[in-house]
Design a protein around this nucleic acid. Structure first.
Length: 416
RNA sequence: GUGGGCGUAGCCCAGUGGUUAAGGCGCCAGGUUGUGGCCCUGGAGAUCGUGGGUUCAAAUCCCACCGCUCACCCCA
């Protein structure tokens, strides 16, 4: 038997209720904040993603890479920001009034070992504000992300923010960090030894107990920010405070992707359950330039839909059920079936969701099915009804029935 | 990539060496004329993850593989 590939899953109708709920909220809020939808393809030129992280980085190694028949090297979309920036450049969106504000809901693919909240195919809702360095946008994006999650009914959300500086000031900090760490070299965990050489900022993110002590004494990046970055970061915080968004500074928060500059942030649920980030993001003022555009500041976030669903379930948030059919049309006999077929078609033409009984079931079993479909009404057409051109209309919750002419059924149901 | 836990029907699961693998949910049918939900009765549905080994005998013990799951790593 075939199975869905590892780390992927089918989204069954019941689960789809969560998706619909989340997507509708996302679309509503994004347009409310002035973000417009933009969809990028499921695969891209492999090189596009080379800019999001250094060569040996996990996210690069985890990409689904393949060649098409022409020999072009492609990759399944690993994250949303680089493709959006590609589209921004490709379609000359820099000619629009800046910032250009875009959102997307896309699948993302990474070849990882699956676990709770981590899949080989997952879906991200992302928002990007491109073309403006104003710290008010950093705050807007954080507010939008927070509002999105809390309006879904999630509570106990913790926002953490940090600034990781810019091309001017970050190298100085990295040097200081390296210098500090070099004195502890032999006490580091194996992962951190690699980090020290490859991506020193990530040293701060280590969860190994033995490394915690070292992290505690490490220099803080916020002490090394240039005055511009410092001002920017302070403004972001001021705006957040004014907006009533509570946040926590976390000078150890660095984020994995290479393109981030200045503001970085994450949201995760506090309390019980898995403590995974539901979303995160930050400013990426260098990415567009690296992709071949003019220097263009930008800021954005991405949230993981599957993780949000996990959090909704953890917090027992009730989501609306998917719409149910209104009417079930039961019939007895060949003539009646013909009339039922026509009636169902007519109901559907009028926008009334209707289900026709199929097969040759007893009335009892037809009603059982109607019951389990949770319809409001069952229409019953038997031989008597065919002769009189009527049907029995049964209200499924009260059990009340009345006989009505064929041509009145649709309008009768429409009114209710 | 590293480490733990687990694989018995669509789902939840009992069964730790010995006759036709038990139960619940769900599904299907019936409980006298053409009426659902509750109840009752019956039925269908299982290569006991796969392959090998031990044994007179394996769902049960051993090994390998595969899969699921959780944690680490990393990330949404």
């Amino acid at each position: 038997m075939f199975k869905a590939p590892r780390g992927t899953s089918d989204i069954l109708p019941q689960e789809k209720a969560y998706w619909k709920y989340i997507e509708e909220k996302a679309v509503y809020l994004c347009q409310l904040y002035g973000y417009q939808p933009l969809n990028t393809p499921v695969f891209e030129d492999y090189q596009l993603f080379a800019h999001i992280a250094p060569d040996g980085a996990d996210i690069i190694k985890e990409m689904y890479v393949f060649e098409d028949r022409s020999g072009q090297k492609l990759a399944l979309t690993a994250e949303g920001t680089a493709p959006i920036c590609r589209a921004y450049l490709e379609h000359g969106l820099f000619n629009l009034p800046q910032p250009v504000k875009l959102y997307y809901i896309i699948p993302a693919f990474r070849y990882e070992r699956p676990q709770a909240g981590r899949y080989r195919q997952h879906h991200q809702l992302g928002c990007e504000a491109i073309g403006d360095a104003d710290p008010v946008l950093d705050a807007e994006v954080i507010e939008l992300m927070y509002r999105f999650l809390s309006s879904l009914g999630l509570s106990e959300l913790l926002i953490e923010i940090n600034s990781i500086g810019c091309r001017q000031c970050q190298p100085g900090y990295v040097e200081a960090l390296k210098k500090y760490y070099s004195t502890y070299r032999d006490r580091l965990c194996p992962d951190c030894k690699v980090r020290l050489a490859r991506n020193p900022l990530r040293l701060l993110d280590c969860k190994e107990v033995s490394c915690q002590e070292i992290i505690t004494g490490a220099p803080k990046i916020t002490d090394y920010l240039c005055s511009e970055c410092q001002t920017h970061f302070q403004s972001v915080q001021k705006y957040l405070t004014e907006l009533g968004i509570s946040y926590q500074l976390n000078h150890k928060l660095v984020r994995g992707l290479d393109y981030y500059t200045r503001t970085v942030f994450e949201v995760k649920p506090e309390g019980k359950g898995v403590q995974i980030a539901l979303g995160g993001g930050g400013r990426y003022d260098n990415l567009i330039e690296e992709l071949g555009g003019k220097p263009t500041p930008a800021v954005g976030f991405a949230a993981g839909i599957e993780r949000i669903i996990i959090a909704l379930k953890n917090q027992n948030v009730i989501v609306p059920t998917l719409p149910k059919p209104v009417a079930y049309v039961a019939c007895l006999g060949t003539q009646a079936k013909l009339e039922a077929t026509k009636l169902v078609s007519r109901l559907r033409h009028q926008g009334i969701a209707a289900i026709q009984a199929t097969g040759d079931k007893s009335l009892k079993s037809q009603l059982r099915q109607a019951n389990s479909l949770d319809v409001k009404y069952t229409v019953i057409i038997g031989e008597k009804e065919v002769a009189n051109e009527t049907a029995v209309l049964r209200d499924m919750s009260s059990g009340e029935q009345k006989t009505v002419p064929f041509n009145e059924i649709a309008s009768l149901l429409e009114k209710r």
